[in-house]
Computed example of a mutant assay.
Amino acid sequence: MRGVHHIAIICSDYDRSRHFYVEVLGLGVLHEAYRAERQSWKCDLDAGNARIELFSFPTPPPRPSRPEACGLRHLAFATEDIEADIGRLTSLGIAVDELRTDPFTGRRFTFFADPDGLPLELYEHSEGA
Rank of each mutant, 00 (worst) to 15 (best):
L54E: 03
R63S: 09
G106T: 08
R18N: 04
H19R: 15
G117K: 06
T59V: 07
C70E: 14
D81N: 15
R63Q: 14
R38F: 13
K42Q: 06
F104R: 12
C43A: 04
Y14G: 08
V4A: 06
G28E: 11
P60H: 12
L27R: 09
A84D: 09
A69W: 11
S40N: 09
A50H: 08
D81K: 11
P61Y: 01
D15P: 00
L72Y: 07
S65D: 06
R100H: 12
L54W: 05
P103M: 01
E83D: 15
A33E: 15
H74Y: 14
A47S: 02
Y34L: 06
R51M: 12
R2K: 15
A33T: 13
F20M: 10
L72R: 00
I94N: 10
L30T: 02
Y21I: 03
V24D: 07
R88C: 02
Q39M: 10
L75S: 11
A36I: 11
V96Q: 11
E80L: 13
F57Q: 02
H31Q: 12
D46K: 04
G117W: 07
T59Y: 05
A113T: 15
F112Y: 04
D13W: 06
P103W: 05
L122F: 14
A36C: 01
L92T: 00
G117M: 04
T110P: 02
A113L: 03
F57D: 00
G106S: 05
T79Q: 02
N49K: 10
L89P: 01
L54Q: 04
